[in-house]
Protein backbone atom coordinates (compact mmCIF):
# COMPACT_ATOMS: atom_id res chain seq x y z
CA UNK A 1 0.00 0.00 0.00
CA UNK A 2 2.52 2.52 1.20
CA UNK A 3 4.99 1.54 -1.48
CA UNK A 4 2.72 2.30 -4.41
CA UNK A 5 1.45 5.56 -2.96
CA UNK A 6 4.98 6.72 -2.52
CA UNK A 7 5.87 5.43 -5.94
CA UNK A 8 3.20 7.70 -7.39
CA UNK A 9 4.39 10.68 -5.43
CA UNK A 10 2.97 10.70 -1.93
CA UNK A 11 5.49 12.03 0.55
CA UNK A 12 6.93 9.21 2.66
CA UNK A 13 5.92 10.81 5.96
CA UNK A 14 2.21 10.99 5.30
CA UNK A 15 1.15 7.42 5.84
CA UNK A 16 2.12 5.48 8.92
CA UNK A 17 1.50 2.00 10.15
CA UNK A 18 2.26 0.74 13.61
CA UNK A 19 1.63 -2.11 15.93
CA UNK A 20 0.92 -1.24 19.52
CA UNK A 21 -0.54 -3.46 22.21
CA UNK A 22 -3.15 -2.12 24.59
CA UNK A 23 -0.65 -2.12 27.42
CA UNK A 24 1.89 -0.02 25.57
CA UNK A 25 0.70 3.49 26.38
CA UNK A 26 4.25 4.79 26.35
CA UNK A 27 4.86 3.36 22.90
CA UNK A 28 1.61 4.92 21.73
CA UNK A 29 2.73 8.32 22.93
CA UNK A 30 6.14 7.89 21.37
CA UNK A 31 4.75 6.88 17.98
CA UNK A 32 2.08 9.59 18.16
CA UNK A 33 4.80 12.17 18.59
CA UNK A 34 6.78 10.75 15.67
CA UNK A 35 3.76 10.70 13.38
CA UNK A 36 2.76 14.20 14.31
CA UNK A 37 6.29 15.51 13.82
CA UNK A 38 6.60 13.81 10.43
CA UNK A 39 3.33 15.25 9.17
CA UNK A 40 4.05 18.70 10.58
CA UNK A 41 7.39 18.71 8.83
CA UNK A 42 5.65 18.08 5.50
CA UNK A 43 3.07 20.82 5.82
CA UNK A 44 -0.47 20.70 4.46
CA UNK A 45 -1.35 17.91 2.05
CA UNK A 46 -1.39 18.69 -1.64
CA UNK A 47 -1.47 15.19 -3.01
CA UNK A 48 -4.87 13.76 -3.87
CA UNK A 49 -6.95 16.38 -2.08
CA UNK A 50 -10.14 16.85 -4.00
CA UNK A 51 -10.67 20.54 -4.61
CA UNK A 52 -14.13 21.95 -4.34
CA UNK A 53 -15.52 23.09 -7.64
CA UNK A 54 -14.55 26.67 -8.10
CA UNK A 55 -17.52 28.96 -8.26
CA UNK A 56 -17.08 31.90 -10.55
Amino acid sequence: MKNLLEHTGLEPGRLHFSWISSAEATKFVKVAKEVSAAVRALGPAKYLVKRRAEVV
Binding site: I20, S22, A23, A25, F28, V29, S36, V39
Partner: peptide, 27 residues
Protein backbone atom coordinates in the same frame (compact mmCIF):
# COMPACT_ATOMS: atom_id res chain seq x y z
CA UNK B 1 -2.22 19.03 10.76
CA UNK B 2 -5.19 16.72 10.64
CA UNK B 3 -4.08 13.14 10.97
CA UNK B 4 -6.77 10.55 10.49
CA UNK B 5 -5.95 7.69 12.79
CA UNK B 6 -7.45 4.23 12.49
CA UNK B 7 -7.00 2.44 15.79
CA UNK B 8 -7.81 -1.16 16.52
CA UNK B 9 -10.33 -1.40 19.32
CA UNK B 10 -8.33 -4.08 21.10
CA UNK B 11 -4.81 -2.85 20.69
CA UNK B 12 -3.93 0.72 19.96
CA UNK B 13 -7.24 2.17 21.07
CA UNK B 14 -6.60 0.55 24.42
CA UNK B 15 -3.12 2.00 24.38
CA UNK B 16 -4.51 5.44 23.60
CA UNK B 17 -6.98 5.04 26.42
CA UNK B 18 -4.28 3.98 28.79
CA UNK B 19 -2.15 6.91 27.67
CA UNK B 20 -5.06 9.19 28.52
CA UNK B 21 -5.69 7.59 31.89
CA UNK B 22 -2.01 7.80 32.70
CA UNK B 23 -2.07 11.51 31.74
CA UNK B 24 0.69 11.24 29.17
CA UNK B 25 0.99 14.27 26.93
CA UNK B 26 0.84 13.74 23.18
CA UNK B 27 0.15 15.98 20.18
Amino acid sequence: PKIITFLCNWCSYGAADLAGVSRFQYP
